[in-house]
Amino acid sequence: MGCFHSTASKQFPGHEDPVILASQTAFSVSEVEALFELYKSISSSVIDDGLINKEEFQLALFKNRKKENLFANRIFELFDVKKKGVIDFGDFVKSLSVFHPNAPHEDKIDFSFKLYDLDGTGFIERQEVKQMLIALLCESGMKLADETVEIILDKTFLEADVNQDGKIDKSEWQNFVRQNPSLLKIMTLPYLRDITTTFPSFVFHSEVDE
């Protein structure tokens, strides 16, 4: 195991053993190694320091480093598990694992709750939902009157905010998602089933036979 892992650890700060990462995630060891090929390419796209900064993250996602977006920023913050302003390989694999088709449903619910709880208070507040709606309208070029936005918010909070305290807590979110399973569609990436074929070069560096 030694050579690949120790070399990668020197070049890639925060690099974790693929066998351990596989045991903690929905990925096999080969899939973790294939993800490392993707990670190497993203983390060297602007600054070759073995870490993914926000610019590299956005460049990989949108092919455009200048795009400033509320949702992209929030996803970066959630991938930055250790809150260092950069994403290391362990963060990358553990975060992407939530999007694996085989990842536990509860993990997807938790991640989506954190995603929409913009300020991390443990509640999705009406003001946050309005902010996200406005961001979506700006991004899509869709125009809705403020009155219509308020009607959508009223309807959403009537359904989701069961105790009607003006904010959605974790348990209310779990119930709401159960009633509206399509809300979790963004939490599954079918591509993650095929990463070993998307990044076949991992076999040249692989340390395991699977």
């Binding site: 990989a60 999007f99 939902v129 991004e139 963004i186 990436l189």
Partner: peptide, 29 residues
């Protein structure tokens, strides 16, 4: 009622339409 009326859609269904919440860009070369 118009079935396409946005008032029949909940806020999170609309928010989920954001292309910035789609991580498939990582895998598109």
């Amino acid at each position: 009622k118009n079935p396409d009326s946005p008032t029949l859609i909940n806020a999170f269904q609309l928010i989920g339409m954001s292309s910035c919440l789609d991580l498939s860009g990582f895998f598109e070369k």
